[in-house]
Amino acid sequence: MLEHPAQSGNPRLGHLAFVPLDDAVKGNVIARRLTERIALGLLADGTQLPSEADLAAQFSVSTVTLREALAELRSLGLVETRRGRGGGSFVKAPGDNATGLLTRELSELSIDGLRDLRDVKCVVSGGAAALAAARARGIALPRLRALALKVQDQTTSAGLVRADCRFHIEVAAAARSERLTQAEMLLQLEAAPLLWLAKSPALTPERAASEHLAISDAIASGDPELARSTAEAHVLSAMNHVIELRMSMEGDPNVRV
C-alpha cells in the first residue's frame, strides 16, 4: 500500500519531509520516506535531523516507532547517530548507492498502489492546470514558462526531482487554491522520486521540459480544457513508465505467496 499522508495541518514546502502520518502507518513508511529524501539529496549530507521526540511528534508516532525507523535508516547507512554534546542523528549521503536504494523502495510499493497514485495525480494535476488556465494572469505566466524549462538544465536526480516538483506545484499555486497546492505537493513528492528513478528513454529531462512547456502554453492561452488534457497526458505517460518498471520487478507486497 502507498502511504496516505494525513491531510490535516497546513504543511509548508520546507516541512514536507516531516508531514504527519495517520496512526495506522508504521515506522517502515517513515523509513521509506526519509530514505527517498536522502537518496535524492533532498535531505543533504550532514543535515541534522530534529530530536527523536520532535520527529516523533512531527510524524505523529510514538518514540518507539520512530526509533525503529531510525534503526532501519542506520542499518542502511543513511543516518549516523552521535552521542554526547552536539550529538543527534545526521544524514549520510548514499553516494553511488542512491539508485539501488530507490529501486528497493519501488519494489516495496504495490502495482495497484502505483496505479492509484497515477489516477489521483492525473485528476489533481489536470484539474490544477485547468483552473490555472482560467485564472493565471500577469507575471505568473512568464514565471511558469521559465520553470517549465528548468528540468532540462538539471544534471542530478535531486535537481530533476526539484525542478519537476517546482513546476507542478507552481501550476497548482497559479490555480489560487491552498488545498490544491498542498495536495499537489504531497502527490508530487511521492511520485517524482519514482519517475526520475525510472530513467526511461520515454522520460528524459528534454521530454519532460517540452511537456511542461506545452502545459504552460495551454495555461497562458487561457484554454482550460487543453491545459487539463495536456497535464493529464503528461502524468499518464510518466507514471505508466514507473508502473511498467515496477511490473518488471518480482513480487508484490500485497500478494502473499
Binding site: N10, I169, E170, R176, Q182, M185
Partner: peptide
C-alpha cells in the same frame, strides 16, 4: 492574490 507555497502556504 497568490498562494505563497514557499513561505506560509
Amino acid at each position: 492574490p497568490y498562494v505563497d507555497y514557499c513561505g506560509t502556504n
